[in-house]
Every structure is written in C-alpha cells, then in structure tokens.
Amino acid sequence: SRHPRRRALSLVFALAALLGGFGVWALYGSNWLLVERVSVSGNEVLTEKQVRDAAGIPVGTPLLSVDRTAAERRLKARLPRLDNIDVVRAWPHGIGLKVIERKPELVMKRDGNFVEVDDEGVRFAVVPKQPKGVPLLAMEVKRSASLRHFGSARLRREAVDVADSLPESVARDTRTVRVRSYDSVTLELTGGRTVLWGSGEQGAAKAKSLTALMKAAKGAEHFDVSVPSAPAASGS
C-alpha cells in the first residue's frame, strides 16, 4: 500500500512543479501578461508623453517584472514638478502612473523667466510667463543677517507661509511678496497699497487684524500688521 501512496505523492509533486513552472512562464515568458499600455492620470501642466517618457517603462515588458520603485525614482529625478507619484499595475496589460503636480504659490524672476515656488518653498520649475494669479516673490536678503542665520530656503518658506495666511480678498490683490529679512515681509497690492506683515508668525491673527483694518480705513494705502494687536494704517 505504500508504493501506490508514494506514486500518488510523486504525481502530486510533479504536477505542482509543472503548474509552478507554467505559472512562472505565464508571468514572465509568455505574451499573456505583457505591458501593452502605460496610462497617466492627475497631470495638469505636464503632458502624458512627458510623464511616460520619464518613467521609462517600455511596452512589451512582462508586467510582473516592472520595478515600480525604480520608475517612481526616475519620475522624481526627471520631473521636479511632480510632488506625489504612484506606479500601479493594471492587470492584465497595463501600468498606471498616478501623479500629483506641485502648485506654484509664488514665482521668482530669473533671466527673463519665472521660477515657480510651491507651498513648501521648493523651486521646482522654470516657465517663460508668470502664471496668472500667482504673486511675485522678491528676495532682497543678500546683505541680511537672516540669510546667514536661516538660509534662503527657510526664507522662501516664510514668504509662502505669509501668502497662505492672507485673507482671500487680499490674496487676490497681492502682486508682490517682498522679503528683506525674516522679520520683514511686505506685501505690495494693486493700487499702490502696501502691507507690512513682519514675520510669518501669528499669520491667522495678522489676517484677522488686516481685514478689520482695511474695513476701518478704506482710503488708506499703507497697512502695518507686524504687531497684530496694534495695527496701523496711513496714507490716502
């Protein structure tokens, strides 16, 4: 009785090995599960071709052998505009590139072009025209002790924090965010109006104070909310 049992077990193992080999061949060696398309979603400024080319996933590659982590690294390195990337397999024949692009909060002038700065103060792209509704960031900190102490990246983040704190009505009218030091950020608005904001600290209190001040002094041109508990307005 043992011999038939052994033969049965041998048959089971042989069948398992055969199926295992078939499975490996089906996944890696056959034409059944090859990449036939690479789709892109979430892109707004970048074209689908730019994203596909940067990912470097060739059509015809076995789907299971696609190194998603490596593709994500290539996308990050080649397309700094991308903030978040997810490479997914779409069985049986697709790869999906799901991306989120960085949004410009401010722009900086450079050699006739504009450098886009995101909500973390990261410079991520150069464009020929200033994006509509995005204020200019003017960094005037070359001789400032703040530059040595904080560094330019931190000062850019400070400027972005100020822009993010603005009341919606003020944000719409803001044309330039001028940074002279960590404690000296000034907004230049339409109509020649200015706002001395100070540092990026106490943003919510300063926004509330500025809204009230602008309502109370409608003809004023210059507003100071650097100390939100003691705002001031001047000029007419």
Rank of each mutant, 00 (worst) to 15 (best):
W32R: 13
V38M: 03
R123A: 12
M139P: 04
G56R: 06
G200H: 06
V40R: 07
L46S: 01
F223A: 04
L64W: 11
T194V: 10
T61A: 12
L18D: 03
A54H: 00
H3K: 12
R78Y: 08
G151L: 04
A71G: 06
P128W: 07
S10E: 12
W197I: 02
A16V: 08
P135N: 08
D119W: 09
R157A: 12
E188M: 15
A217G: 07
E158H: 11
G60I: 00
S199T: 08
G112K: 03
S199P: 05
D224W: 04
V141D: 00
R52M: 08
P228C: 10
P80S: 05
P128S: 13
E105P: 03
V66Y: 00
L97M: 08
P92W: 03
V24A: 13
T186W: 09
V134A: 01
R102Y: 03
E48V: 11
S209L: 09
T211C: 10
V179W: 00
G133H: 06
D111V: 09
G23L: 12
G200T: 05
R178Y: 06
P135K: 02
R157W: 14
D67P: 07
R154D: 13
V117K: 01
S146C: 01
V117A: 05
V51E: 06
L97F: 07
L9I: 15
R143K: 15
V87A: 07
A232I: 07
L136Y: 06
V179R: 03
V66W: 02
R89H: 09
T69F: 11
